[in-house]
């Protein structure tokens, strides 16, 4: 009678250990960078290129399908505004800051060209085009 009453409690410690390990794994591998760009944009693929090395103070300029220019989640009203922003960034970080043009593949070249012209006018010479090297499955 007494034996049946004293059920040995299940040892939960190993399970909790593993569960915590998994949580830490998912928390640390979550990449917040993926929210930096609009998901509606279709970025062209360039499978033969090398993966980009993230550099601090990189300026990402998004050119959307309809030609609007965005930085982060902010649409820019005109080219003069972009020029001012780049000039300001240049005054802080110098002329060697990389600019990445994150252009929608469906956008016409004229819009990308406009952005390139503004960037070149500021004196920033590191212009890069963003492309998908490897698609996430």
């Amino acid at each position: 009678m007494r034996k049946t009453e004293e059920v040995e409690p299940v040892n939960l410690t190993p399970m909790i250990d593993i569960v915590f390990q998994m949580i830490i794994f998912f928390v640390t591998t979550v990449d917040l960078d993926k929210d930096k760009f609009d998901k509606e944009m279709v970025i062209p693929e360039a499978p033969h290129t090398r993966e980009a090395k993230p550099e601090p103070s990189t300026i990402y300029i998004q050119v959307k399908k309809n030609g609007t220019v965005w930085i982060g989640s902010t649409p820019l009203p005109n080219d003069a505004f972009l020029f001012g922003m780049l000039k300001k960034a240049m005054s802080i970080h110098g002329q060697n800051i990389p600019v990445v043009i994150h252009g929608d593949g469906r956008a016409e070249h004229r819009h990308v060209r406009r952005v390139m012209d503004v960037v070149a006018k500021t004196g920033i010479w590191r212009i890069n085009f963003s492309a998908i090297q490897k698609k996430g499955t």
Binding site: T49, A52, V100, R126, N128, S130, K135
Partner: peptide
């Protein structure tokens, strides 16, 4: 996530 490449021009 998609891996990006930066093509310098």
């Amino acid at each position: 996530i998609d891996l990006f490449a930066h093509l310098q021009v």
